[in-house]
Design a protein around this nucleic acid. Structure first.
Lengths: 189, 189
DNA sequence: GTCTATACCAAGATAGAC
DNA sequence: GTCTATCTTGGTATAGAC
């Protein structure tokens, strides 16, 4: 595998970015966390922009794998959607953390074009998966009232992200649950 | 009224904050924009934290007034909700700008406790208004399928905010429209 | 691959003259 | 109320030794 240090840096950076945003962490923070000097980080990631791209790419892969695992563990559309909602809920970490893509979304001006491209790619992938979950839920009847799976997905992803944001501001995961209540009710047995 | 300079500073700061986030603008930026030296800004706002609180307070007042105006111009629940959605849509400014509260939401660690308190107050106010709009829409039958106005509002505010975020990342206001499509369809005549 | 040392810049903030 | 000048801190990044 890639060096442990590199993985540790990515782990530390992802944690920091999801808690404090792109502008909210520095090479000094990472250095202290990982246990090397900040100059050494440049050996692994020449610039912070490169690090951001690497973070988004790994995040993409991770969530793609998570969605695939959900598919193989849950046959119905409702169960799949509920599993994704649960994952976004866990990602909150008690109201202190966000999806990496959400966390990056505000400070777009400081992000490189390459990073924004990765964020777009990520949202496209998630949108596709959510659409298929609604389609499945419409077919198997486990999600009530689905007329247009595409329209549902286009609302569900922003809702998940906005709900995370609301929970983050309030430092209260219940805000997330409250925001998703209407949707989960439609997925209940 | 308060001095023109102070108002100009608030205007410039709000524009900058909504486009680039709290960490994305500096006293140097404001100084250049308004046409004074950055040291002079401290006369009006002793610290950036004070400026952030003043921004949120004014934003609260502005949106409270906007909601009151919507109420007086639109009698039905559906028309009121559509008017609010339209306002959040305009606030996007072509995909470059966000609601101030959304823009502040990511970098919470750099925000003062007073600023976060203002954000919470803002969201509470908006939630109340949206709840009343759904209640009205349920009574007058202009919003279809409303069973629980409170639950609707708790989903609608994060949806509006998440939709703005999605449009911001894509630099495309159509993402906002797509996210709100399901809701506006329920408000159509 | 990691280190020390340093360059360079931008940030928020303060002092004191006008 | 605005200015110049300065302080302090902390950011990203580089050079070159080990």
């Amino acid at each position: 595998m890639a060096s442990d240090t590199k993985k540790n840096l990515l782990d530390s950076a992802e944690r920091a970015a999801r808690q404090r945003g792109y502008d909210g962490f520095s090479y000094a923070d990472l250095a202290a966390d990982v246990g090397i000097r900040k100059a050494s980080i440049h050996h692994h990631f020449a610039s912070k922009a490169d690090l951001a791209v690497a973070l988004m790419r790994r995040y993409y892969t991770d969530l793609e794998a998570a969605c695939a695992e959900i598919d193989s563990n849950h046959p119905t559309g409702a169960a799949r959607l509920n599993a994704l909602i649960a994952r976004y809920h866990e990602a909150l970490d008690g109201g202190q953390s966000l999806c990496l893509c959400v966390s990056f979304s505000t400070g777009t001006d400081n992000l490189s074009a390459a990073t924004i491209a990765e964020m777009t790619r990520f949202r496209t992938m998630m949108l596709g998966w959510i659409t298929r979950a609604f389609l499945q839920g419409q077919k198997d009847g486990t999600i009530r009232g689905v007329v247009d799976p595409t329209a549902e997905a286009r609302a569900a992803l922003p809702l998940l992200e906005g709900a995370q944001l609301a929970a983050r501001v309030a430092q209260d995961p219940q805000k997330f649950e409250a925001a998703l209540g209407l949707l989960t009710a439609r997925c209940a047995p």
